[in-house]
């Protein structure tokens, strides 16, 4: 008993366990879970799209600030050493560790920036009720694919651990970039909570500009 093809748009399959559900409009502020495995299928928050866009823009600017300002500096016995995020990446600059420097740069800077840029590109026009840009679906798919590889929040916890390790040996000063980076982490968590992937995909389904 196959449902007729025209009904297929009303069905949603859980990406985790393949269970079919019928899509309905959700009451405001509620979430729809998969009946079998409990995966969140959709969330309903009107205006969420605009909030997600503004959070993504904020995070993008703050991440740029986190790269350019001093991050931490260390004082011990009259000697001083200031560190930026870039320096932390370049710590692995000898011989065999160079690929690791590249990987760390991707995990804490390049991938978070790419995700934010892709998201802004994809949903920017949707917020203004315009048709999606060319390649918007590819951009959103990329942002989704890169999600596990964006490790800014893990980096911040790593910084905390490192601070405790050196706190006994030297005086550490925290620079503006540290706060910018922490802000990015908080905003990213908030943004990932608000985002409803299903409705974004649905919105991106409209024909593109050209």
């Amino acid at each position: 008993m196959n449902p007729a093809p025209q009904n297929l748009d009303d069905l949603v399959a859980c990406p985790q366990c393949d269970t079919l559900h019928q899509a309905h409009a959700l009451p405001e502020g509620t979430r729809a879970y998969c009946q079998r495995c409990g995966y969140v299928l959709m969330t309903s928050q009107p205006a969420a799209m605009a909030q997600v866009l503004s959070l993504a823009l904020t995070a993008f600017v703050m991440l740029l600030a986190a790269v350019s300002f001093p991050f931490l500096s260390l004082d011990a016995g009259g000697l001083q050493n200031a560190t930026s995020v870039i320096d932390a990446v370049l710590a692995f600059n000898d011989g065999l560790a160079i690929p690791l420097a590249v990987a760390v740069a991707f995990f804490i800077l390049v991938i978070p920036l790419m995700r934010l840029a892709a998201l802004i590109y994809a949903i920017g026009p949707l917020v203004r009720d315009e048709p999606p840009r060319n390649g918007a679906r590819k951009a959103f798919a990329l942002a989704e694919r890169l999600r596990p590889w964006s490790m800014a929040e893990i980096f911040i916890v790593g910084v905390t651990v490192a601070l405790v390790k050196v706190a006994g040996l030297a005086a550490v000063t925290i620079g503006p970039a540290f706060w910018a980076f922490s802000g990015v982490v908080l905003i990213t968590v908030l943004k990932d909570q608000l985002i409803c992937r299903y409705s974004i995909w649905e919105a991106l389904e409209q024909p593109t500009e050209r």
Partner: peptide, 8 residues
């Protein structure tokens, strides 16, 4: 390790 190596 990255932060410690850059900082210290």
């Amino acid at each position: 390790v990255a932060i410690l190596s850059a900082l210290v």
